[in-house]
Design a protein around this nucleic acid. Structure first.
Lengths: 253, 253
DNA sequence: TCTCCTTGTTGCGTATATTGCAACTAGCGT
DNA sequence: ACGCTAGTTGCAATATACGCAACAAGGAGA
């Protein structure tokens, strides 16, 4: 494979947190600065990076352009977005939309809480499979064999005290999610945030995405959060309907 | 420079309009599909592209991630966004934020019209220098020499019957914009849309961005659009203040 | 003003990594 | 079963990216 390309793309990650100068980037990448310079020049030419007023390299506007186009390519986002806005206004809380992206689960849309509390998550980031409601909802729709296979390959990083830590617990949870049609994530990813996630289906009935509503525990207790479940499910059903799903078709597996 | 990298990045443009298969991409890029395949695999590994359910390659979720981070890196967007929301709600019309990105002018934020009418523009796209209000506002702040130099290098593509078509007219317009502090763009870019653009200044008083409000002529005539000017200027001043500009400092040029 | 030090840029030989070919596999529809 | 499309691998040739070392351009400080 293309090692050069891979390293060049990695440069974008290096400057993604904060703008950096040539030498600093070269040091981090552990390659000669000449090489880095030439790649950065190419990236700059293609507008993937720009030099700011201090001469540092930072992410460029081409990324906005491509990101915007990428969103258009998954009509899922376009279809879901207005419904997510409605849910966000209705509940006032952080709303996520996530879907499979190859073997990973990725946030593809997010609406911030109307309260000042903000969560650390962003569109494009991958969601931890064992520690997020959306991932569990998506995985719960897979066959038993694939669930097991995935469960055994997960690194059960303990984000909080409540994070699921074994494949056995994980599979048990997926069964529960599949049975009741939603996941209640009780501070498994962030110490002070719990969340409810439900599936979104396409025409065939297959789960293609998940939406979740995340709330700091100080704002709502478990009962109060679960009281939002009907609203969240209505939202997911509205999206599913827009994707061609008809509610009468029951989930056949 | 890195020709390989450049070509690989070009692949993203090829699939940016719609997902494509390997052969199609190879044909467009005019290189052997083996090469394309290996580069696409690397891009896929880095999540810059994904294969959709039909096996076609399309833009990947890494772009969302980087785009989101890129926005964070320009605090201009973060600072301006809430004000733009307010202006968007106040007027109901499409609002753009644009800034220099090297030699080009790029849209870095956009709020859609609350009416069903939508404009063809997107975050990340470059704005035509001679045919958009934001570009003229930004250019009007440059020195006379640089304006002239730029004016002579422009390809005066005639988007509409009203598009400025000569360097002379263009420079004259920039003088007008500089003198009155805003640009009125009368269907110069799209046949049925006119717009008003005003500058945003940073602490030093230099123009660092421009905001514009675009309206279909059927919704508002010239007088009605210009009636929005105070609101738009208030918005721009609010952003400028947040950037550290103090209105008393007059624009020294 | 001079010097030092940081930061970015260029020329060039070498060696590696990318390229293109050709042959092969896999899946699909007729 | 057959051909057709779409993607994958091995390999040799050579184009290309790499690192070095030396050079330019500011800025800081004395």
């Amino acid at each position: 494979m293309s090692a050069t390309l891979k390293r060049a793309l990695g440069l974008l990650d290096l400057i993604s947190q904060e703008p950096k100068g040539l030498d600093e980037i070269a040091a981090l990448a552990e390659v000669h600065k000449t090489t880095i310079m030439r790649q950065l020049h190419t990236l700059e030419e293609c507008r993937f990076v720009v030099r700011n007023d201090r001469g540092q390299y930072q992410l460029g506007s081409k990324l906005f352009e491509l990101s915007s186009l990428a969103l258009d390519q998954r009509n899922l986002v376009a279809v879901a977005h207005p419904h997510l806005i409605a849910l966000n206004r209705l509940t006032g809380h952080t709303v996520h939309l996530a879907a499979f992206e190859g073997p990973e689960v990725v946030y593809i849309d997010k609406l911030e809480s109307l309260h000042s509390v903000r969560m650390y998550s962003r569109i494009g980031l991958t969601a931890a499979l064992h520690a997020t409601g959306v991932a569990k909802v998506l995985l719960a729709d897979l066959s038993v064999e694939r669930r097991r296979h995935i469960a055994e390959s997960i690194d059960y990083h303990p984000y909080t005290r409540n994070t699921i830590s074994t494949a056995q617990d994980f599979l048990q949870r997926l069964d529960l999610v599949a049975a009741r049609g939603y996941d209640y994530d009780d501070r498994e990813h962030e110490e002070f945030v719990h969340c409810v996630a439900v599936p979104v289906r396409e025409a065939s009935g297959q789960v293609v995405a998940a939406i979740s509503c995340s709330v700091p525990v100080v704002l709502r207790n478990q009962a109060e959060l679960l009281a939002l479940l009907p609203d969240i499910q209505n939202c997911a059903e509205a999206i599913s309907k827009d994707l061609g799903w008809t509610p009468t078709e029951r989930n056949a597996q």
